[in-house]
Design a protein around this nucleic acid. Structure first.
Length: 553
RNA sequence: GCGCUUGUAGCUCAGUUGGAUAGAGCAUCGGAUUGCGGAUCCGAAGGUCGCAGGUUCAAGUCCUGUCAAGCGCGCCA
């Protein structure tokens, strides 16, 4: 659909440049902004300024050249040049009303774009180790990745969500020996708990379940006892993880186990590939990857230990090669900040595999620090010190939690104060938005009860929408496609939470000042359509964020 | 010690690839309802954008230095 008004304005400017003989070689990228002040119009650009630097002409000369062909354009009611070099655009009511109609007719297609061109994108996120329940940090990644996937698919990408399960290695051994200790505790034995084991109490439940289901297989002399326990425990934990994700509104298309890569012999294969490319060498009995030949500041890393085991890095290279070979046009990883030091070596590995560095896009989200009142809680699965995502969901709900995570840029360190989150629940911004939606539903219900039939936009005189509040609402709605587009382009869902708050505020202001259902039948019709359009917009954007839009609250 | 990230109102955070007079929510104070949902609306107060330099017509935004916080610097994953 490409209903971008900014693109439209940009095209006009481009044409105006052509017509006024400004050399297109000098043309910088055209940026269209929303001015902070209403007096400065609905949209503005600093193009005259940037052009004047490149062409040597004065900004006001260029301003005149650019604005005069636009003066009779129906899209604008006014176009003005302002010193030192801005052009302000005032969108015409005609355009706003046409856009309102489009939104009503096209619904969620209103924000569709051909940007993605049907290209395949894979987003891998959460990928928490199956050694314990999801905690609040995973919640941030889950909310972010999931809504990012929604947004990308809206702008024309084919999106796949993937979860990578590290079900091999030292941590799984620690997990199984921890379960074994818990089991023996249950039998009344006094055991010393493994020092680097998982201390969380959830393992007691799993041990109980293991005793019940595995029964006689669990003797100390049983062969592969720890493997058996490890498999059992990871499966149980994964089940719980899936339940939590489901409750958080997140579903994955694909679950990939690290163990499946081992079965496929993917790791020795990728290593021999790298060997041929002369990226490896042996030292101290171990096999090393020459990270430093790609990034001088990085140290070389071990891929195969002296004892013959592969490192996590080795299997991760195999995993990423596998992903890249699956034929995606974009591969996006979302990692927590605790993996930040891992980025350079992964990028180096990608290049060693003959892909350009950009073939893998890595987004780092900062840690969530937790507070309970004044106490800080660190999140450590190993020590069993963490607030499970489930607990947060139970206390503040899926919608509030997702909204909270999505309102911040993922680069910000954020503090989640559980006490505050609970206290704020009634005044949480997400309820403000949902309330606007429910109010509109209520108005529409009211209209139905009064047997007012809402006519189609073509039959209704939208010209009756003349108040300031109505214009502001139409203006905001007309900018929605650009917001979605920009959120997709910059991979920043939080733009949409900001947009929703502003839209909801405009609606509440309108609502307190004007009646939708009133004595003037024509005006009622027009306002019902406006309100219906807002409902579509709010509901749609909430959907992109994975937040519910309740008819009643 | 080195690297990455972050420092904006009392608190939690926005701030459009450098733009025009720095924003929102919460908390605080004051006001609004015989109207479609008061989980709302209106107003007040609240800031040396960590600090110091620099770049330029223009810096919260870019550069350098400095202070502080988080994370990372394994033949762990």
């Amino acid at each position: 659909m490409d209903n971008s008004i900014k693109k439209l304005v940009g095209d006009f400017l481009y044409k105006a440049c052509q017509e006024s003989g400004i050399s297109l070689e000098h043309l910088p990228p055209i940026f269209i902004n929303q001015p902070k002040k209403k007096e400065r119009g609905d949209l503005s650009t600093n193009l005259p300024f940037s052009l004047s630097q490149r062409t040597g002409k004065s900004a006001s000369q260029i301003g005149k050249l650019l604005t005069s062909p636009l003066e009779n354009e129906k899209l604008f009611s006014r176009v003005e040049f302002i010193l030192p070099g801005f052009i302000n655009f005032f969108i015409s009511d005609l355009y706003l009303k046409q856009t309102l109609k489009k939104l009503l007719i096209q619904k969620e297609k209103f924000t569709q774009f051909s940007l993605g061109e049907g290209k395949k994108v894979q987003i891998e996120f959460v990928s928490a180790n199956p050694t314990g329940p999801l905690h609040i940090g995973h919640g941030r990644a889950a909310a972010f990745g999931d809504s990012m996937a929604n947004i990308l698919s809206r702008v024309g990408y084919k999106v796949e969500r993937e979860y990578y399960i590290n079900d091999v290695g030292g941590q799984i051994k620690r997990l199984s020996s921890s379960v074994w200790s818990r089991l023996r505790e249950l039998e009344g034995e006094k055991v010393s708990f493994p020092q680097d084991g998982y201390k969380g109490e959830y393992l007691i439940e799993i041990a109980k379940k293991a005793r019940k289901e595995l029964g006689s297989k669990l003797s100390e002399t049983a062969p592969h006892l720890l493997d058996l326990l490890g498999k059992f425990a990871t499966d149980e934990i994964l089940k719980e993880i899936k339940v939590d994700l489901e409750a958080f509104g997140v579903r994955f298309d694909n679950w990939v186990r690290e163990s499946s890569l081992h079965q496929k012999k993917a790791i020795p294969q990728v290593l021999s590939y790298l060997q041929e490319k002369n990226c490896l060498y042996e030292k101290d009995g171990a096999l090393w990857f020459k990270t430093s030949s790609f990034l001088p500041d990085e140290e070389d890393r071990v891929l195969r230990r002296r004892n013959g085991d592969y490192t996590y890095f080795a299997s991760d290279i195999a995993y990423h090669q596998d992903k890249l070979r699956r034929g995606f046009d974009r591969v996006i990883d979302i990692w927590g900040a605790d993996h930040i030091g891992y980025v350079p070596r992964m990028k180096a590995a990608i290049q060693a595999l003959d892909y350009p560095e950009e073939a893998l896009e890595i987004i780092i989200h900062q840690m969530v620090t937790l507070k309970r009142g004044k106490k800080r809680v660190s999140a450590s699965t190993r020590k069993g010190e963490f607030i499970p995502l489930k607990e947060v969901l139970d206390e503040v709900g899926k919608d509030a939690a997702r909204f909270f995570f999505l309102s911040c840029t993922c680069g910000s360190h954020l503090e989640f104060d559980l006490e505050l989150a609970k206290k704020q629940t009634p005044e949480n911004p997400v309820f403000y938005i949902q309330y606007a939606y429910a109010r509109i539903c209520s108005i529409l219900e009211n209209a139905r009860e009064n047997r007012i039939k809402i006519k189609s936009p073509d039959e209704t005189g939208l010209d009756l929408l003349t108040t300031l509040e109505e214009r502001e609402l139409m203006r905001k709605l007309s900018l929605l496609p650009d917001e979605v587009y920009e959120a997709a382009k910059s991979l920043e869902p939080h733009r949409l939470t900001t947009y929703l708050q502003e839209l909801a505020a405009l609606f509440h202001q309108f609502y307190t000042r004007h009646r939708v259902i009133n004595r003037d039948k024509e005006l009622t019709q027009a306002r019902l359509l406006l309100v219906k359009a807002i409902k579509i917009a709010i509901g749609d954007v909430l959907g992109l964020l994975g937040i519910s839009a309740p008819q009643k609250m």
